[in-house]
Design a protein around this nucleic acid. Structure first.
Lengths: 165, 165
DNA sequence: CTCCATTACATAACATGTTATATAACATGT
DNA sequence: ACATGTTATATAACATGTTATGTAATGGAG
């Protein structure tokens, strides 16, 4: 028995467990975003990436590719609009559709993130998940333990140092 | 390339992915709670279980065992208090501590859930996670696919029917 | 026995998710 | 053309998480 009841409850609390770990990872990611001198929230990243890779998308198309609810997309797009990273144009054929485009600033942001931020995050998470094996709960526990031992942003450096020896 | 960019981005979006799946599972769980004629939110369940298994706990102790922030615990406890499931007593020795106790109604709720709800949820999630193997992302994708094919609450019945053949 | 650091909790401000529902634009059958 | 069903978004109400910070109770140091 650990002192973590969510962990002890196993599959009964899988949803809670996944959510908790996801939020923890996003929180650690936010720190890495700050270090890259970029200003964005973790949840907004997938929207920018989607628009950068797939081109302008309507709200509904974003809902489909992001896998979250339409109101969540509407709000996130609204926030990104306020930040000047995207702009909304009414579709010419169908006046109901709102097409979300990256602005010049948004595109610039996406390019910088593509070269300076995403690779760093992906490498750190990859390192965090190195050699995970076994049942889902086992792997989740291992990730939690590794994060307890070392914050996400330090996993990359840790690996490099280990190799340097 | 699927039409799910979070999935396509792999480890880069692991946090977002875990959170999304966790929320999905909690959402499906909520449906099962309703079916059991119980009224509670998914996130409140671990608090009830913790108090039922470990006895009265302070806010700080709940923070420790639930692994979430103190303000989150404070609010959840406040909501459970409004619902009459728990009550708060000031500790006699240390006037700063607030001890959270299950009320008679809360205890009754915990007992009912212990026999009628938790086993059902755990069995459904266990069935959902049957024979998962491989890397973390592979297992997550498999869970998502299985949920797409069949809502969580139907996984138990599905298993029983499969066995009956 | 005061003064101050620490501890435990509350509160504010914000980030996000969801479901339910309103609204406007399209599409259609008669 | 018109009434009506469908689709695409917007909005409301609510559930939760976080960080930052305020406040009261403890507990030591001088």
């Amino acid at each position: 028995m650990s002192d973590d009841i969510i962990r002890d409850l196993g599959l009964l609390c899988l949803g809670t467990r996944l959510k908790r770990l996801g939020e923890r990872l996003q929180g650690e990611t936010l720190g890495m975003i700050d270090e890259a001198d970029l200003t964005i929230q973790p949840n907004q990243c997938p929207v920018i990436v989607a628009l950068h890779r797939l081109g302008p998308l309507s709200i509904g198309e974003l809902v489909g590719t992001l896998g979250i609810s339409q109101p969540a997309v509407t709000r996130t797009v609204g926030l990104l609009t306020e930040q000047g990273l995207v702009e909304i144009k009414r579709s010419t054929e169908d006046q109901r559709r709102r097409e979300v485009h990256l602005t010049a600033e948004g595109d610039s942001f996406a390019r910088r993130a593509d070269t300076h931020l995403w690779p760093v995050i992906e490498a750190a998470v990859t390192e965090l998940c190195t050699d995970l094996k076994g049942p889902l709960l086992r792997q989740l526990a291992e990730i939690e333990d590794r994060l307890d031992a070392l914050p996400l942003r330090d996993h990359l450096t840790a690996k490099k140092e280990a190799k340097a020896r």
